[in-house]
């Protein structure tokens, strides 16, 4: 296998309130011999909130981010579900709507950039599973997670809407650049085909990753549900109810820890345990790991790299 190399779009959270996400991602890549080039020019993806305020501006900014991966001639990987969704929603639109692509490129031309559609955009989770391979990851495990029952929490923006995700998160060895031929962005897809890579009603990727690290994946109903992060400010009760329900479900099914590929889910579920517990009238206390933190634990990365001290709900006991 030739060395895997990607342009890493970190998003904001990995550079701010979850530094442990960035350090563990880089540590995992190094252990596995995957080369990640940081896209330091990139901006915030808008996190769906900028999209609410000014959809066009969010398209321009996301297109600019992709431009920098294209300039490097590298496929882009993301480490945040919301970054992944907002980036591929932009890509999807620009690859299929020549008029919008021209409008966006007219703005980008003012700063000497052009969106071409030559880089794929995938979540790092799928780069690990589909490009690197679970078997090969298993071979690199030095600290099997066999004592742990781990509850996978998938996070909405990497599994829904499936009509967009399957096109981008699937491995695409012979990726062809779209001409922007104006085909409708919303064609009806064969259900089975759309769900082959990841079925949003029964997702398996994280479960399979947990098993590859020799942990036990916990089966519980909330694993593909919403954590409520995006209404945390304007509707905290909704957010707490959703977070609390998901965490309680994981705890009641015997989980020792929750793991998620999305730092926004992680932040919400890690930080809001007390307020969610108060609202639900029960105790909620469970460590919540970022997906790369979990992999880093099994690959024997250092405590500094894994960064468990940054987790709000005590997680340092997971390092054995």
């Amino acid at each position: 296998m030739s060395k895997l190399k990607y342009a890493l779009y970190t998003g904001c959270t990995a550079r701010e309130s979850t530094p442990e996400l960035l350090s563990s991602t880089l540590a995992v890549a190094e252990k596995l011999g995957i080369e990640l080039v940081l896209l330091d020019e990139a901006s915030c993806c808008g996190a769906s909130h900028l999209q609410d305020f000014d959809e066009f501006l969010s398209l321009v900014l996301n297109a600019r981010n992709i431009c920098y991966a294209e300039k490097l001639g590298l496929p882009m990987v993301t480490i945040c579900n919301t970054c992944q969704l907002n980036t591929v929603m932009t890509k999807e639109l620009l690859d299929h709507d020549p008029e919008m692509r021209a409008k966006v490129n007219e703005k980008l031309a003012e700063v000497g950039l052009e969106y071409k559609g030559t880089s794929t955009v995938r979540h790092f989770l799928y780069a690990l599973i589909d490009d690197y391979g679970l078997d090969k990851i298993s071979e690199k495990v030095v600290k099997p997670l066999s004592h742990f029952n781990i509850a996978p929490f998938y996070g909405c923006h990497n599994i829904r809407p499936s009509h967009i995700h399957y096109k981008h998160n699937m491995p695409q060895p012979d990726y062809e650049v779209s001409e922007g031929g104006g085909e409708v962005a919303y064609e009806e897809e064969d259900l089975m085909y759309k769900y082959t890579h990841e079925n949003p009603y029964v997702p398996t990727s994280l479960d399979r990753l947990i098993e590859a690290l020799e942990g036990k994946s916990v089966q519980y109903e909330s694993k593909n549900k919403c954590c409520g992060f995006h209404v945390d400010l304007q509707a905290p009760e909704t957010s707490n109810a959703l977070t609390g329900t998901a965490l309680s479900d994981a705890i009641d099914h015997g989980a020792d820890a929750v793991v998620t590929p999305c730092p926004l889910c992680q932040l919400n579920m890690d930080l809001k345990q007390e307020s969610a517990g108060k609202q639900l009238g029960r105790e909620i206390e469970i460590p919540v790991l970022h997906m790369p933190q979990m992999v880093a634990l099994a690959l024997g990365c250092t405590p500094e790299e894994i960064g468990l001290k940054y987790n709000v709900t005590k997680a340092t006991d997971l390092y054995v």
Partner: peptide, 21 residues
């Protein structure tokens, strides 16, 4: 606030559930 668009949690369950796209 409380009933309108700002209370959408952005989970995309609706996009997935719709039989008419």
């Amino acid at each position: 606030l409380g009933s309108g668009v700002w209370d959408c949690v952005k989970c995309f369950e609706c996009a997935e559930a719709c039989p008419k796209d």
